[in-house]
Amino acid sequence: MDVLSDAITAMRTGRPHSGHTHKLAPWGLRFPPSPGAGFHIVLRGSCWLLPPEDAPPVRLGVGDVVLLPRNRGYGLADSLETELIDVVLTDGGLLPAQRSELTDGPPGAETTTMLCGAYQLNQARPHPLLASLPDVLHLPAQVGRHPGLRSLVELLGAELTDRRLGTDAAVPALLDTLLLYILRAWFEESACVATSGWAAALGDPVVTAALREIHQSPAHPWTVEELGARTGLSRAAFARRFTALVGRPPLAYLTWWRMTTAGRLLRETDAPLRSVAQQTGYLSEFAFAKAFKREYDLSPGRYREQGRGAGRRSGSAMTGEG
Results as ranks from 00 to 15, higher is better:
2 D>V: 03
4 L>N: 01
6 D>I: 05
8 I>A: 07
12 R>T: 07
19 G>L: 13
20 H>Q: 12
21 T>H: 12
24 L>K: 06
25 A>S: 12
30 R>C: 04
31 F>A: 09
33 P>N: 07
35 P>F: 11
36 G>I: 00
37 A>G: 12
40 H>A: 15
44 R>T: 01
48 W>I: 08
53 E>W: 15
54 D>H: 14
55 A>R: 14
60 L>D: 07
66 V>D: 01
67 L>M: 12
68 L>A: 03
68 L>K: 10
72 R>M: 10
74 Y>W: 13
76 L>T: 07
80 L>W: 08
83 E>R: 12
89 L>F: 09
90 T>N: 05
91 D>Y: 15
92 G>Y: 02
93 G>Y: 03
98 Q>A: 10
104 D>H: 15
105 G>E: 01
110 E>Q: 08
110 E>N: 05
111 T>P: 06
112 T>V: 04
118 A>C: 12
119 Y>K: 00
124 A>Y: 15
125 R>G: 05
129 L>F: 04
133 L>Q: 00
134 P>Q: 07
134 P>N: 04
136 V>I: 02
139 L>E: 01
140 P>D: 03
143 V>A: 14
146 H>L: 03
148 G>R: 08
148 G>M: 06
155 L>T: 01
156 L>D: 00
156 L>V: 00
160 L>C: 09
162 D>K: 15
163 R>W: 10
166 G>V: 01
167 T>Q: 00
168 D>Y: 10
169 A>S: 04
169 A>E: 09
171 V>C: 04
171 V>Q: 02
172 P>G: 00
176 D>R: 11
178 L>V: 00
184 R>S: 03
186 W>P: 01
187 F>N: 03
188 E>P: 03
192 C>Q: 10
192 C>L: 13
198 W>H: 07
198 W>S: 02
205 P>I: 04
212 R>N: 14
215 H>Q: 10
215 H>C: 08
220 H>Q: 03
220 H>L: 08
220 H>I: 03
221 P>Q: 09
226 E>D: 09
228 G>V: 06
232 G>L: 06
238 F>K: 02
240 R>Y: 14
242 F>V: 01
246 V>R: 03
248 R>E: 15
253 Y>Q: 13
255 T>Q: 15
256 W>H: 13
257 W>N: 13
267 R>F: 10
269 T>Y: 13
270 D>K: 09
271 A>H: 15
272 P>W: 04
281 G>K: 07
283 L>S: 14
287 A>S: 12
290 K>Q: 13
291 A>T: 05
292 F>E: 00
299 S>F: 10
300 P>H: 06
301 G>I: 08
302 R>T: 10
304 R>Q: 02
307 G>L: 02
315 G>F: 15
317 A>R: 06
319 T>W: 15
319 T>C: 14
320 G>S: 13
321 E>P: 10
322 G>Q: 09
